[in-house]
Design a protein around this nucleic acid. Structure first.
Lengths: 228, 228
DNA sequence: ATGCCATCTGGCACAACGTGTCAACTGTGC
DNA sequence: GCACAGTTGACACGTTGTGCCAGATGGCAT
């Protein structure tokens, strides 16, 4: 629903909505030096944060320690990340929703919404195993810690909204009509269920297959959109 | 998954896991005076908090104001509620999960898990309209405010766990096997979807019917549990 | 190189949340 | 009335997050 970015004094590291979501621009040498320094600082903060979180846990890591490790002032930390949570949230959410949006838009109009969303979920799969592992680590952390529930919730909320909007677009329904909401809910529920099983199985099962199976089961009864 | 109650110095208002989940004990005059005072204080805090939230918004209400309005020390507030969020979270979650658990246990063993969960959802419907309205108000608030996302997430997480455990019990599967997770995910997804539509429609549609329709659609493809 | 301007940084003050601790008070049972 | 357990209030403290402003730095024109 509401995705209010919560006003914030124009920050340096403010994400420009990420790359248009197309394929990687590959080249494009790093522009100005200022830009490079910002990227460095942001990366230093994120790296330091994740390292410390892994070492001593999220709760037992203070922002001061992170800033110290990245050799910047605490104040600077908060210029790059709205909160401690957002280091974790980081690009994860934006990447996920960005990929999903792109994957959805790449589906042909001839496909039914149910199949389109399913195919987009397949296509969205994280590329490199390293990245997938990192994303999973973050999600796991978010799910376990109560105070991170908000972040976790936000990610899936965004994903949900993206899907609902796509389906609404395809079916000429309103995003908050039951059909789009249902399909979006099925997709996110499938992901969550698959994640839970995947985690519990210690990663021995294929996350993709689990998710695909879950999605198929959940959507088998949804059928085509209502005429309207 | 993890429902760690996060250690807390034994508090006075600590909920005793609610009534055993059976029918209301109706009579049972309030016991000792101490007990009465605790209940009074808790009620005063909750009432004051909700009134202030409604009047000036959640964010623009400080714990100090709430404590002041209830005429207790700030420290006392935190003895009754782990955090500001928990005033909102309050009994809502416990009531919901408690009701759901009871409703599930009341289903006959002869019913398929899918139907049992669906019937339990029906049976769980909030009784008095006033209560339903209040619960909806709180949920709406939680969904809108980013910092309350954690609470919102927690409520559905608990509900999810209760359902998954019940299904696991019935099917002799593990709670984190795909089937129980899927069914639980379908149930919570149905509720969320129905809520979203309900809110968007300004309450003109029946929440119960929306939820029932959503659940039916989502579970139509799930079928019976795997033989295991 | 010099100077101007936008941007970024650091440090300080400050509000709010949440916890530990302890002394004082109040209810309960004897 | 007395002893004891439970409750409360007050204070100190650590942490998160924001406002503010002075100073450093990069970009750019001259």
């Amino acid at each position: 629903m509401n995705t209010a970015p919560t006003r914030h004094e124009a920050a340096p590291g403010q994400r420009p909505a990420a790359v248009p979501a197309g394929a990687a621009p590959t080249g494009a040498a790093t522009p100005t030096r200022r830009e490079r320094k910002k990227i460095e600082t942001r990366a230093a903060l994120e790296t330091a944060a994740l390292r410390l979180f892994a070492k001593q846990g999220y709760e037992r890591t203070t922002v001061e320690e992170i800033a110290e490790a990245a050799d910047v002032a605490v104040r600077t930390f908060f210029r790059y990340f709205q909160s401690k949570q957002h280091v974790l949230y980081g690009d994860v959410a934006l990447n996920i929703t960005g990929r999903m949006r792109a994957a959805l838009l790449a589906r042909p109009d001839t496909e039914s919404p149910v199949r389109a969303v399913g195919a987009a979920l397949d296509a969205m799969e994280l590329g490199e195993p390293d990245e997938q592992r990192q994303v999973l680590d973050r999600l796991r952390l978010m799910e376990r810690l109560p105070e991170l529930g908000g972040t976790y919730h936000m990610i899936f909320q965004h994903l949900h909204d993206v899907i609902a909007e796509y389906v609404a677009d395809r079916t000429r329904l309103h995003p908050v009509d039951l059909y789009p909401q249902l399909l979006a809910a099925a997709a996110t529920a499938a992901i969550k269920a698959a994640l839970a099983v995947f985690e519990a199985a210690g990663g021995r099962e294929s996350l993709t297959e689990l998710r695909a199976a879950a999605y198929t089961s959940l959507t088998a009864g949804i059928g085509d959109p209502p005429t309207g």
